[in-house]
Structures are given as C-alpha cells and as structure tokens.
C-alpha cells in the first residue's frame, strides 16, 4: 500500500515516454450474435504492444464479449480478428497456442478450488508449457511475490479473501508469460475494501510495460493507467479517445451521460 504513489508516478511517466508499438490485436468490423441478439456490431479496434486500453460502457454493451473474442472464448461471426499475427475464427487450430500468450482474468476469479494456490499457478506451466515442477514453482513463487501474497502459497482458494483470490488469478495468468493481459471486470465481484489491492497490482503490472485490455468501471484506475479509453454501447464502439480527452471533454453525448452517471458518487 505504501508503495502506491511512487509506482503511479512511475507509470504515468512511463506512459508519456512509450511510443506505440506494432499492433497485437486488430479487430476489423467484427460482429457477434447470440441467437437474434447482436452483441457486437461492426466493432473495430487496434491494440498495440505496450498499450493499455480500458473499455467501459453500460452493462450489456458488449465489453465482455469483445475481450472474450480476443482469446477465442467467444468466436466472432463477421469481420476479421487478428491476435499476435494469427487470424482467429471459430475452431481455428491456433487458438490454443495463442491463448498461452493471451492471459485472461475473470470477474469471478475462476480459480481451481480443488488445487492449492501454488498448484493453481503451476498446473498451466507444467501441463501446457511442459516445464518441470521446479521451474514452474520458481515461476509461481516469483509471481506470487509480484502480487504480494507469497505466504498464501499452500492454502486453498476458498481460504483466501476475494481480493487475494483475484490476485492469485492474475498471478496464474502471468505464470504463462503472456504478451497481452485481458481483464474482464476484475473488481466487480469484490467487496469495496478489496478493490484497491487488486487495482494496485494491476497498476504495478502496467508499470512493467504489459499490454493490457481492461473492462472496468473503475474510472480512477482508468485515468491513471489508460492510454486509450474505449466507450461501448449496444454492441458498438461509440468513442475511442485518449483519457485526458475522454474524461474532460468526451466527443459523444452518450459517453458524457455515462460518465456523469458513474462519477457523480
């Protein structure tokens, strides 16, 4: 907690220096249907290496669906989606290899309840990347340190608080050494007093230069970390702006209304 302010300053300065890298995720005009319902409607978005994109918008606007498309948990129905140079489509054989480079953090943590914290972190590296147990455990302990809970390694997920569980989930993704991290409302299922510790870890992660796409309503976090704000409504991207523009003078009336609603508290 004490380290919070310096890190944020570091991140802010880092952001100003970083030049946009090559595109990691390129979505061109993608559509997604759930039955009759159009969840994504002609969405185009480019995420570059090192870029932090925060996606916000009212619930049901397609934010989660969009980032779930980015690692193939949902398949898009129209348009083109390229991740790490691979064109994704339903059932494309490269999806598995790709997911190893695209980490995902879920709203409900989705830790493996039958495994200890350490086993949650090592099972992917051992079974998927075929690392030895010793290598996997060394990596796991490194990332548990990174999320500030090395002492919880031998507990079961159910013994941890929500905030700790979500930090374990972040560490689990990091153990696969991903090149992009996707966060699907990572703090929405948390008690208010635990949101801070998870956001701190995410801010620190941003400080390492990780490419991140974050769906969140935490506008304070967005302001600190985002390079690009994306505002969605009814399956469409309504606005894509840098955060200083988005928060002070949003281009769209819809975004302005949304910000008024969530910032007035």
């Amino acid at each position: 907690m004490a380290a919070k302010q310096p890190i944020i300053r570091f991140v802010t300065s880092l952001r100003k220096q970083t030049m946009p890298g090559e595109a990691i995720i390129t979505a061109r005009n993608i559509d997604k249907f759930f039955g009759e319902f159009k969840a994504l409607d002609d969405v185009s978005l480019t995420v570059r290496r090192g870029e932090r994109v925060v996606v916000c918008g009212p619930s049901g606007s397609g934010k989660s669906t969009l980032i779930r498309c980015f690692n193939g948990l949902e398949s898009h129905d129209g348009g083109h989606l390229t991740v790490e140079g691979q064109e994704l489509y339903a059932g494309s054989p490269e999806i598995r290899a790709l997911r190893q480079h695209v980490g995902m953090v879920f709203q409900q943590f989705n830790l493996f309840p039958h495994l200890s914290v350490l086993e949650n972190l090592t099972i992917g590296p051992m079974k998927v990347r075929k690392l030895s147990r010793a290598e996997a455990e060394a990596t796991a302990r490194k990332y548990l340190e990174r999320v500030h809970i090395p002492e919880q390694a031998d507990k079961k997920p159910a013994q941890l608080s929500g905030g700790q569980q979500q930090r374990v989930a972040i560490a689990r993704s990091l153990c696969m050494e991903p090149r992009v991290m996707l966060f699907d409302e990572p703090t929405s299922a948390l008690d208010p007093e635990m949101i801070g510790e998870v956001l701190d870890v995410m801010v620190e992660l941003a400080g390492t230069g990780m490419t991140m796409v974050v769906v969140t309503h935490e506008m304070g976090f967005a302001r600190k970390v985002a390079d690009t704000m994306v505002f969605m409504e009814q399956g469409r991207i309504v606005e894509t702006s840098p955060p200083d523009v988005f928060f002070t003078n949003p281009k769209s009336a819809r975004a302005r209304l949304f910000l008024d609603q969530i910032l007035e508290h």
């Binding site: 695209v102 995902m104 879920f106 493996f112 993704s173 696969m176």
Partner: peptide, 24 residues
C-alpha cells in the same frame, strides 16, 4: 468458468477434463 479458466491458460479439452473438471 472452470472450463474457461482452463482454456485461458492454453489447456486442451482433454487436459481440462483430466486436471480441472474431473477432479472437481
């Protein structure tokens, strides 16, 4: 969510069965 978490760390369906879903 357990299937999705297993998939998100690159597990195949068979691996997800063996290591994540069946034990639970």
């Amino acid at each position: 969510g357990q299937w999705e978490a297993a998939a998100s760390i690159g597990m195949s369906r068979a691996q997800a069965y063996r290591w994540i879903v069946l034990p639970q």
